[in-house]
Amino acid sequence: MNVIDKVLGVSPSVLSIRAQRLELISANLANADTPGYKAVDIDFGDALAKAQVASTNLDSRNGLHFDIGGLKPDIMYRTSGQQSLDGNTVETDQEHAEFMDNAIRYQASLNFLEGRIKSVLLALRGE
């Protein structure tokens, strides 16, 4: 892990997980009227844990080693309170709420990153 990675901390992984989650939720919203579609989501905690394992820079020198960089979060089906008659499990209101929540948290991570980058720039300039 190089210095810049250390400075930026966990925020880059968080951003990429948030982006993936945003994608899944937008797919749920897109399929809100599709018969038989099952809403999907990822567990953020699990995804972050896997991303951190993947970022510890493990080297594989042998073909039999597991490719740990390819650890991806498990995509799981949402348990729905009320399934509609056509088998669709998307609850639009819940998805909207999750979407906004996720977007705000994405922006929070952006703010953290921005702060870190500003500190690095300040240190580099030495003003």
Binding site: L15, L22, I25, S26, L29, A30, A32, T92, H96, F99, M100, A103, Y106, Q107, L110, L113, E114, I117, L121
Partner: peptide, 21 residues
């Protein structure tokens, strides 16, 4: 409308990410 909203929010996020730093 919900698709439009999703697109708008995503656009804002992308613009903010691009202007990072």
């Amino acid at each position: 409308q919900s698709s439009v909203e999703a697109m708008n929010t995503t656009k804002q996020l992308i613009m903010r990410t691009l202007s990072l730093g």
